[in-house]
Lab assay of single mutants.
Amino acid sequence: ELSWTAEAEKMLGKVPFFVRKKVRKNTDNYAREIGEPVVTADVFRKAKEHLG
């Protein structure tokens, strides 16, 4: 699991709890794919757009 900024964690907190774990995993995987060592708010937004 990658490191997350406080802002990205806050955004994740707005995701319904029953899918939060999956969203975190998918976002981590997306960040790795694009070469990001940390999940930022920008990476979170891009993952959301990319993953739907």
Rank of each mutant, 00 (worst) to 15 (best):
R24W: 04
E36H: 07
K10C: 11
V39T: 02
L51D: 07
R24Y: 03
E9N: 06
H50S: 10
R32Y: 06
R20I: 04
V19N: 13
K25R: 14
E9C: 10
I34Q: 10
A31E: 00
E1K: 11
K46N: 08
R24P: 00
M11E: 08
P37Y: 12
K48L: 15
Y30Q: 01
H50K: 10
T27F: 09
F44P: 01
D28I: 08
L51N: 10
E1M: 11
K48S: 14
K21Y: 11
I34F: 09
A31L: 02
A47S: 06
K25Q: 14
E7G: 06
T5F: 01
A47R: 04
V23F: 09
V43M: 04
R45A: 09
I34S: 07
P37T: 14
A6F: 09
L12S: 01
P37M: 13
H50M: 11
A47C: 06
I34P: 01
R45Y: 06
G13Y: 12
D28N: 12
A47F: 13
K25C: 08
P16L: 05
N29C: 09
V39N: 00
A8P: 01
W4T: 01
F18M: 10
N29Q: 14
H50T: 08
F44Q: 01
E36I: 07
D28W: 03
R45C: 07
F17L: 12
E1S: 12
L2R: 06
N26A: 15
G35C: 06
D42W: 08
E9I: 15
T5L: 03
A41W: 04
K48T: 13
L2F: 05
N29F: 09
M11T: 03
E33F: 12
R45G: 05
H50G: 07
G52C: 15
T27C: 08
N29G: 08
A41G: 09
V19L: 15
V19Y: 15
T5W: 02
K22W: 15
V15Y: 14
A31M: 02
I34G: 04
N26P: 01
G13W: 11
W4N: 00
A47G: 04
V38H: 06
K21G: 13
G13N: 15
M11W: 05
K22G: 07
P37V: 12
G13K: 15
T5C: 04
T40N: 07
P37K: 12
D42P: 05
E36C: 08
K22L: 14
V23A: 05
E33V: 09
V38T: 07
K21M: 14
K14T: 08
G35I: 02
A6W: 10
A47D: 01
G13A: 15
E33Y: 12
V39Y: 00
S3G: 08
L51P: 06
E36F: 07
W4H: 01
A31W: 01
K14A: 09
E9K: 12
F17E: 09
W4A: 01
F18Y: 13
R24K: 10
I34K: 08
F18I: 10
K22Q: 14
V19A: 15
R45F: 08
E33K: 11
D28C: 05
A6P: 12
L12C: 02
R45K: 10
E9S: 07
N29I: 11
E7A: 09
E9L: 15
N26Y: 15
T27H: 02
F18C: 14
P37N: 13
E33C: 15
W4P: 00
K46Q: 11
R32V: 06
T27E: 00
P16Y: 06
F17T: 08
L2C: 05
A8F: 01
E33G: 09
V15G: 02
T40H: 03
T5K: 02
N26I: 15
P37G: 09
T5Q: 03
A8I: 00
Y30G: 00
F18R: 13
V15Q: 05
E36A: 15
G35R: 06
K22M: 14
R20W: 03
K10S: 10
K14C: 09
M11P: 00
A8V: 02
L12E: 00
S3N: 10
V15H: 07
E9A: 08
A41Y: 05
V15A: 05
V39F: 00
E36S: 11
V15C: 09
E49L: 13
V43Q: 02
S3Y: 12
P37W: 12
K14Q: 11
E7I: 05
F44E: 00
K14E: 14
R24G: 02
V19Q: 14
F44L: 05
K25Y: 13
V19F: 13
T27M: 08
T40I: 01
H50P: 04
D42Q: 08
K21E: 15
L2I: 14
K10Y: 13
K46V: 05
F18V: 10
K25A: 12
I34E: 06
M11G: 03
V23M: 09
V15L: 15
K46H: 07
E1F: 12
T27W: 04
Y30S: 01
L51T: 09
M11R: 03
E49C: 09
G35E: 05
L51Q: 10
S3A: 13
G52T: 13
R45W: 08
A41Q: 06
E33M: 15
E9P: 00
A41V: 10
A31F: 01
V23D: 02
T40C: 03
M11A: 07
K10D: 11
L51K: 09
A41P: 07
T27K: 02
E33I: 10
E1P: 15
V23K: 02
F18E: 11
R24D: 00
E33Q: 12
F17W: 15
F17G: 08
A31R: 02
N29H: 10
S3K: 15
K46F: 05
K46A: 12
K10M: 13
P16C: 09
E1Q: 13
A41N: 04
R20P: 00
R32T: 06
R24L: 04
A6Q: 10
W4D: 00
L51W: 15
V43H: 02
V39C: 02
V15R: 03
T27I: 15
H50Q: 09
A41D: 05
G13D: 13
R45Q: 10
E1I: 11
K22N: 10
P37L: 14
R32I: 08
E33S: 15
T40S: 06
T27P: 00
K21H: 14
A6C: 08
K25W: 14
K25G: 07
G35P: 02
G13Q: 15
K22Y: 14
K14N: 10
E7M: 06
K10T: 11
H50N: 09
R24I: 04
T5P: 00
V38P: 00
L12Q: 01
K25H: 11
W4L: 01
E49I: 13
M11S: 04
G52M: 14
E1G: 13
R20M: 04
N26E: 15
P16N: 06
A6S: 09
K10R: 14
K22S: 11
K46S: 08
T40Y: 01
D28E: 15
K22F: 14
A31S: 05
E7V: 05
F44C: 02
V43N: 02
V38E: 07
G52K: 14
K48D: 06
V15N: 03
G35L: 05
P16T: 04
V38F: 07
W4C: 01
L2D: 02
K25E: 14
Y30I: 03
P16H: 08
W4E: 00
D28T: 08
A41L: 09
V39W: 00
A6R: 10
F17M: 11
